[in-house]
Write a protein that binds this DNA or RNA. Structure first.
Lengths: 338, 338
DNA sequence: AATTTTGTTGAAAACGTTTTCTGGAGGTTT
DNA sequence: AAACCTCCAGAAAACGTTTTCAACAAAATT
């Protein structure tokens, strides 16, 4: 690999001059500058960003930690992040944690070791000990926030899930579905917690509401398993609220296999509005999260923080919206006795 | 940040000794070694991999370039890559190219600049000029290979698409579907080319076969558009072969919207077997690609090449299999006249 | 014409590591 | 007891940059 030294030799100048030409940090005589540029071209020289990073200068790299690359919700977010990052000359270091808190911490310190300029984090935990220390680089939380000692100075971009869950519950009431069960994830992350607590609050008159709640993971398989448990339990229900769309897919699969018609016998609402919800048949009623926007905004936030040094922490809460498709319909007279 | 110098000072030894303790490159007296370890702990020292990378040593980083993170096929592959990489202490640098050849080259040289130890590439091109030069680090191609001057010494892991496409065409013949149309991507990449040519070869008696071929992108939207064009063309068909599952999703959407029943009126076969094909309704008949395995093998290959220096290029071709689900059925008498 | 200012250049230090080289202490061989 | 090894610690060079500093020529001021 050609180094700056080779360029200097070929152009007949010092390495300082080459550096100045490359970075435009000072004036260089016209003809020297031309010779340097010429030499760079013929040698195919690329500056070594490691040496640059060694001086404590930006590496133009952002780390992005997500819980599950196989849940389409996150790739959509990655796209938002990456588009903005690319436009600003940053590369993305993507890491997958499988919703594992321990792995999350490992990835985090790995990114720190790699001297990324900032970290975008979709956490899978409720308290993140590794964020409690004084941060050395900007960190922005996406989709899920955490409470803690020094965490008020962390920026985050989240969605108002209390609002979202109320949209669902009001919609189900509107279509005459009141015997609702909840298939979600344990309320560990802020998002899951908000949704669960809103569900509970809505049913606070019902002492047995807890028996209508099932916990699992954010996958189709888990939705499948939870729905099977639900059926075995013998609980009477006419509607299902799911923690995300994948769970809804799994649940619908089980219900239909057991001769229960969706949406007539049981209406189902998902959460996220991943693209496949539209192509799923029946098309899924769900909560649309502005996922691409989350990525975009967070990306802007962290680049700002990186380039302007310290910046006021911003707490952004976006509004989701209900997308009514085919899996939620009024109880028709024809099906009332099913 | 604490540096090796701080550790040395605290332990009362030279930085050489500290380095030796950390890397185990030479024997160090018991008590000194203990003091060093103690100092490392109390200072919370982490070695700076940039400085290490500067010396031309491995950075324990692998770059992975994929065309479309939003196509679930690739996240599944990423998982395979990442699991093996993690087990070997490597971090993954994931880049998205949107099937854009120019962007692919940019990401490639970006990764090179970042001094990754190796690059895993799912190319979107048929000839990759940037791979023609002498490579400085190992490169392994995934899913798609390229031909070229110096490319025979590149390892790749691909799937036998000639075999796969024949599985589809034989299956369609078995269920009595012979008026088949092709909805795929332009035969730029090796995979698309193999499938298209196999389709053509199968129909080589038919002079008008080219009119039964439609080209677009590997997305639902594109499948949607191609299917609409197909309907507008007035072509008589009883089955559709799709370039991937996403195209199939889009096509099914259009057909059903136009009152054409899938699979009775028209049978459809996808390609890839992404997880949602199982949850799609009707469940998609498709070609299962061992996608996780592709990632795993490629990951092993590149780590081998990195750690053992130069290694014989390996050309691995995996076999796909047909998964018959609900979108392909025999022409029933009841529906024969539709 | 002598002095100051301006503008550019190159030498050298610094960033945090690894590694080669040197030297000294202790043990082993004659 | 003298000469030689062996083992291990520390000094210093090297990796490829950026940046501070000193130096110098030319231009501008007196």
């Amino acid at each position: 690999m050609a180094s700056i030294k080779d360029v200097a030799k070929m152009a007949g100048v010092s390495i300082s001059t080459v550096s100045r030409v490359i970075n435009g940090t000072a004036n260089v005589r016209e003809d020297l500058s031309a010779r340097v540029i010429e030499a760079i071209k013929t040698l195919g020289y690329h500056s070594n960003p490691l040496a640059r990073g060694l001086k404590g200068l930006p590496t133009k790299t952002i780390g992005l930690i997500i819980p599950d690359i196989e849940n389409p919700f996150f790739p959509a977010m990655v796209r938002g992040v990456q588009d903005v990052a690319k436009a600003n000359g940053y590369a993305i270091f993507l890491c997958n944690t499988d919703e594992d808190a321990k792995l999350e911490e490992i990835q985090y310190s790995l990114l720190l070791e790699k001297k990324v300029d900032g970290i975008l984090l979709v956490t899978s935990t409720s308290n993140t000990p590794f964020l409690q220390k004084k941060l050395t680089i900007p960190v922005v939380l996406l989709d899920r926030y955490v409470k803690g000692a020094n965490l008020s100075d962390l920026s985050y971009v989240v969605v108002d899930h209390t609002f979202g869950m109320n949209l669902i519950l009001n919609h189900l009431r509107d279509v005459g579905r009141q015997k609702t069960v909840f298939l979600g994830s344990k309320p560990i992350t802020s998002g899951a917690r908000e949704r669960f607590q809103t569900f509970l609050a809505y049913h606070k008159g019902d002492p047995k509401i807890r028996s209508r709640v099932f916990f699992g993971k954010y996958t189709e398989e888990s939705g499948f398993e939870m729905a099977e448990k639900l059926l075995k339990s013998g609980i009477d229900f006419d509607s299902v609220v799911c923690g995300n769309d994948l769970i809804a897919f799994g649940a619908i699969e089980v219900l239909e296999k057991n001769g229960i018609n969706v949406p007539n016998d049981v209406s189902i609402v998902g959460y996220d509005d991943i693209s496949f919800s539209l192509y799923h048949s029946p098309k899924l009623t769900t909560i649309h999260q502005p996922v691409y926007e989350i990525g975009e905004i967070a990306s802007h936030l962290i680049i700002d923080a990186i380039e302007k040094g310290y910046s006021e922490p911003k707490h952004i809460k976006l509004e989701p919206r209900l997308v009514i498709r085919e899996t939620s319909v009024p109880r028709s007279v024809k099906n009332a006795n099913t």
